[in-house]
Design a protein around this nucleic acid. Structure first.
Lengths: 153, 153
DNA sequence: CTTGAACCTACAGTGGCTGTAGCTCCTATC
DNA sequence: GATAGGAGCTACAGCCACTGTAGGTTCAAG
């Protein structure tokens, strides 16, 4: 059943992963190479669909592509102990928790900065002032521990 | 006083910003072009030092280089109202708070995953299972709202 | 004068995509 | 069967904020 052979667009709609991203996953070997139609277009099976869903879900949970690569290959050997999978998840959780700590500190500091700014001229601006002088900060943020990161989306 | 004319290495040690990064800031116009010694090496003044400290501090607080560009140019017009600086800081705070929310959700979900895993075989692994099936999740994470980001350092 | 650390430029690589240019292919309608 | 336009194809550049490398030059101490 369901031998539907999806096009890349179908797969994109199904999984919520963009067409280009699906092709990207193929080029980096995360998604197995798809068969092609007579006119050289990719045709996907149910197995691809499942793998891509796994991929997407793991990305949503913030795993890196490298971690996902490991998790995917683990999921293909059902008889192995799941220590490794656990370790990857625990490591990721730790990363997430470190980032949380860092972001909470930033939040506090930014709130403080904004609360203290009376909204006058730049000359007296607390925001600018604090940025110019770290000793005005309440906390020891940064210092190359866990740094900030740009946002996706 | 202090007309010391620092080398790029001195400046790096002073600010905690790496030599290459200082050069990078110059090429993208965040740090004014430095004078050069007879042998073509960069020589920095006190003004550079202050600007770089501002830069570093703002980076530690997670502002983007574009935001810092604006903040720096604002800090050079002390007579302007500080609305803009405030707006930038508020926007950044919002970003930070969105990321915090997102990370808290991830933390919860990862903890749940790990707690439920009995540590047997991959076949029965809760980690792998949850990744394969989003409906096993307690929360609606992801879906292209505010996504995860890689870590610096 | 020699050594070696620090400096210089130019460019490639990181992660995880995203966007563009310039094609070809597929399908629905006329 | 012709045509239009949406979907697909490849190849490659760009994003952010750096970081690292190669291969050369300059500087300061001994």
């Amino acid at each position: 059943m369901t031998a539907a052979q999806l096009s890349i667009g179908d797969l994109a709609r199904d999984s919520g992963v963009k067409v280009q991203t699906i092709r990207y996953y193929e080029t980096i070997g995360l998604l197995p190479v798809a068969e092609r139609s007579a006119g050289n277009q990719r045709r996907y099976s149910e197995a691809h669909r499942e793998r891509l869903r796994f991929l997407r879900h793991a990305r949503e949970l913030g795993f890196t592509l490298d971690q996902i690569r490991s998790l995917l290959s683990l999921s293909e050997s059902p008889d192995m102990p799941c220590e490794q999978a656990d370790r990857i998840a625990r490591e990721h959780l730790e990363t997430v928790e470190q980032r949380l700590e860092r972001l909470k500190t930033l939040q506090t500091e930014l709130q403080r900065m904004l609360r203290q700014c009376a909204g006058g001229k730049v000359e007296d601006c607390r925001v600018i002032e604090v940025l110019s002088d770290h000793t005005l900060c309440a906390t020891e943020h940064g210092h190359r521990e866990v740094a900030e990161t740009p946002a996706e989306t």
